[in-house]
Each structure stands twice: as structure tokens, then as C-alpha cells.
Design a protein around this nucleic acid. Structure first.
Lengths: 167, 167
DNA sequence: TGATGTATATGCTTCGAGCATATATTTTTT
DNA sequence: AAAAAATATATGCTCGAAGCATATACATCA
């Protein structure tokens, strides 16, 4: 079929972008792996529970608990008891965690911006429009949204297509 | 800046595409992690050396050797001595490895195609064109090419933008 | 020939991740 | 209202992939 070449190109680009994205983000995190995403998610949703974090990161339960243990030990996050559900933990970033979160997000953005610099302004608009359409097709549950947006800079996501799709 | 929203959307899409891509591919591999990429790379470049594989997978040397050990133990790959350099190992897939490689590639393609199905034919063409332009901007060395194309279906990549950029 | 660089292999250790299980709280059922 | 089931978190245990340091073989260059 004529389209499999296009699929190859798009798949390779997604892989390459995700690589640099995660590399840049993880370089500012205290450890490699999902720590960077955990920090930006907690920053995005203060009061997040461990269970929601677990689903967003596609980890096991114990893996998530241990990851949070490490973030707390590093002074980046803190556990509170959730006001509405006394079983649950409400996670928040410490001031140091906020700083780390900003560093992760700006590193992510810098790398991405330089990769996108080869497009003209019009091409970027067009590419972004199609990307938004594709993104809306990938979201059906709230867990999907947290997972997909796990490294987003939410301060810049004013009319996020993911939120639009869920609403 | 007005463009950071677009960057968010593109970054999130890349992450989501790469997630499904790797999930689909790894589900057909003997183990999670870089094994799926290793198999398709060896399939793509028979005679590949461990050192080249190492750079394409961004692993340590010992990690790559052990990964190859496991692929060989699983009956998916085999070591030969490279004809031109007697230090190097030439890697090849066994018939079972070829079968696995095909399964990985077709799983990858199926998932990607369903994600792209929300675009019209014209939109897909346009998106692919811009993706190719972006992709060319990301390649400067041959190692980059192997890394970026590590999960590509090379039989469908007749005029690959990565190869075009290197030539 | 000798020296340096490159490719591979292996012993050792570390540490992130999952499984099984235990406890606490909420929700549902009877 | 009491009992049962479901949900959220925590922890002991084990596994195994990955890196570091080191050793060996071959190649290349002086």
C-alpha cells in the first residue's frame, strides 16, 4: 500500500521526538525513568493520588509507591492525607520540587523548539492543527489524558485538545 | 509566546505515538525494553556489529552484549565473525527471528495506522510531508539514522527521508 | 615491532520493578 | 446496622536488566 511509507516516516518522527523529549526531561530529574513525568504530573495536578499517578505512568502499584518514596526522600514531593478519602494519599511538590518541575519543562520545550525550527510559521501552524486532530482521536478516558499529558507544560496549554475531547 | 501551545500538542502526540508504537512492538518481542528494536535492526542490517547496535539502542556495551546473549539463547539471532574485521561480531536473525521481526513490524504498523485513521487522505499526505521535513532535520550521522529507524519497516521505506538526508 | 585504539566478553554490583500479602478506609449488599 | 466486597496504600521478597571495571583479541599507525 502507498501509505505505509508515510506511516514509517510518522512513526520514526514520533520515536525521535519522544526520545529527545524524554532525554531532555530526565536529565533534569533526580533519576532516569518515569521520575520526570511523575514530577510534572504532580506539579500539574496538586493533590494527585498514588493510584492516579500509577495509571498515568503505567507502572505497578508497588513501583509507584517506591518512586514516590524516592521523590519524598529527595525532598521533591510530600505526602498528605487526601481530605475527601482517608485511604488515599495527596501528593504535592515541595518548593524544590517546583523548581525541578520548571527545569524539566523548560528543557523539554527547548529541545522540542529546536527540532521544530526547520518549519516555517505556516507549516508549524498546519502541523500543529493536524497533530491536535490526531491527539483528540487518542483520548477517551481521563487516565488517557493524564498519561498523554504527563510531560506537558500546562501553563502553556490554555485550550488543550485533550481537555476539549474529554469535555 | 503563542507557539508553546503548539509545541505542547506536538510533544504530547509524539509521546503518545511512541508509547503505542513501543507497546505494540514489545508485545511481540521475547522481553520488554530494547529487544524489539534490536531484532528489527538486525533484520534491517544483517551483519550488524554489536558496537553499531549499541549506539543505535543507546545502551552500554555490556548491556548490549547481554541483550544479544539473550536473543541468541532464545533462538532469535546468531553471532558470526565479521569477514572484514575479526574483532567484530556479525549479527543475523535466525528464521525464527525473522518471523518475530515480521510480527513486531506488522503490530507496529497496525497500531499506527489505526491512530492515523482519523485523518483524511489529503491531511495524511500533508502531515507526512511535514513529518519528513522534520525528520531530515534530525539526522546528521549514520548512528542517528540507525537509532531513528530502529523500529521502521524497511521493506516499505523505499525513499526514506533519513537516507535522503545522509546522501 | 611496539604502541595506541577499537570490538567483544565477563565478574561484580546496583537498583528499579513486579508479585504476594497485609492494613486501613470506603462503598455496597443483605 | 452489620457483613461483604471493593479500593488505596504500604512492605517483604525476589528477579533481572543495566552499568562499571577489567580482561582479551584484533587492527591500525608510527
Amino acid at each position: 500500500m502507498a501509505d505505509s511509507k508515510i506511516e514509517n516516516v510518522i512513526g520514526a518522527l514520533a520515536l525521535a521526538f519522544a526520545d529527545t523529549l524524554q532525554r531532555d526531561a530526565q536529565a533534569k530529574a533526580p533519576e532516569p525513568g518515569p521520575a520526570a513525568s511523575a514530577i510534572t504530573l504532580i506539579g500539574h495536578v496538586p493533590g494527585l493520588s498514588i493510584e492516579r499517578l500509577r495509571r498515568a505512568l503505567s507502572l505497578s502499584h508497588s513501583g509507584t509507591v517506591r518512586l514516590v518514596d524516592r521523590l519524598v526522600a529527595d525532598g521533591l514531593a510530600a505526602r498528605f492525607s487526601a481530605p475527601d478519602d482517608h485511604r488515599a494519599v495527596a501528593l504535592r511538590l515541595t518548593p524544590l520540587g517546583e523548581t525541578t518541575c520548571s527545569a524539566i519543562l523548560s528543557a523539554r520545550q527547548t529541545g522540542l523548539a529546536s527540532a521544530l525550527a526547520v518549519l516555517s510559521s505556516e507549516e508549524l501552524q498546519e502541523f500543529g492543527k493536524l497533530a491536535g486532530k490526531l491527539l483528540r482521536g487518542l483520548v477517551s478516558t481521563e487516565d488517557d489524558a493524564y498519561r498523554i499529558c504527563r510531560l506537558c507544560n500546562y501553563t502553556a496549554c490554555l485550550d488543550c485538545p485533550v481537555e476539549a475531547e474529554l469535555a
